[in-house]
Amino acid sequence: MWDALKSHVDLLLLSVLEEEPVHGYGLVESLRERSDGAFDLAEGTVYPSLYRLERRGLVTSRWEAVGGRRRRVYRLTSAGRGALERQRTEWHGFARAMETVVR
């Protein structure tokens, strides 16, 4: 599943972060729940992707107190929202095209 997901990880992470700011584990949990367990990633590999998104200015992060603990919380930037919209549009176009071919 990971190989199939790799090229879409950015879209998945940005989509989860669109809902609300969240820390790394919360993000993985959210992905797992929203995909009914289908997207069960090697969890540690999510962090390099998050760091890459942060480097590109699509997400930002800072240490915050969450549930009485200090956690690194990620949130979408305005550039991230723009990138999410573009990637979402591309994905829907791709999915529609696939659907017409693979019935």
Binding site: A42, E43, T45, P48, R55
Partner: peptide, 20 residues
């Protein structure tokens, strides 16, 4: 186990640091 092999995670993180 869920987190993934340390060498895989470390290699991907090292690649990210390498960009910087």
């Amino acid at each position: 186990d869920d987190f993934g092999p340390a060498h895989v995670v470390a290699r991907r993180l090292a690649a990210e640091v390498a960009v910087r």
